[in-house]
Amino acid sequence: MNIVGPEGKMIPALPDLFVWNEDQVQLMSAHCQSCDTYFFPAFHEQHRPGCSRQGVQKVLLNKNGILKSYTIQHYMPPLPFKTEGNITPYIIGLVEFPEGIQIAGIVKECPFHALKIGLSMEVVTFTLYRNEQGQEVVTWAFQPTDPIRDK
């Protein structure tokens, strides 16, 4: 598994959050074996009270999850959210992974009319902007597992 993307072409906007190769993108979580809690980001531990906090290991989450809530955002947030131009309206989805954690992210390739709680989503990348070296600066995102044909 590549910790950074295909050489030179894409870089994550911030490190240690997700990994990718040609086939899939996966979010980087951590799991506590003592209290069975998953964390995201991996470096922000949030244990069950009384947990010994022993046996925390980095894990990659399943590449698929279920959409549990969403919003369509109509105004651009201020910096430090940086994109190439105004991307509104854009979708933010809350996706639940089989491990037992819900994670928020931008949703792409999904027409608004198809948005529905319960939709199966897969983790993908989303290009925020190109940097001075011409690399795509990317974040994680979600898109419907089964492509939706726009009406």
């Binding site: 809530s69 919003t71 955002q73 910096l79 940086k82 994109t83 933010i92 928020a104 992210g105 974040t139």
Partner: peptide
């Protein structure tokens, strides 16, 4: 992270809970 990676000002959080 919510700013740089996701673009989530406060009302997005409220909207997500409201949708639920």
């Amino acid at each position: 992270l919510r700013w740089r990676m996701v673009g989530m000002p406060n009302p997005i959080y409220w909207a997500i809970e409201c949708r639920k």
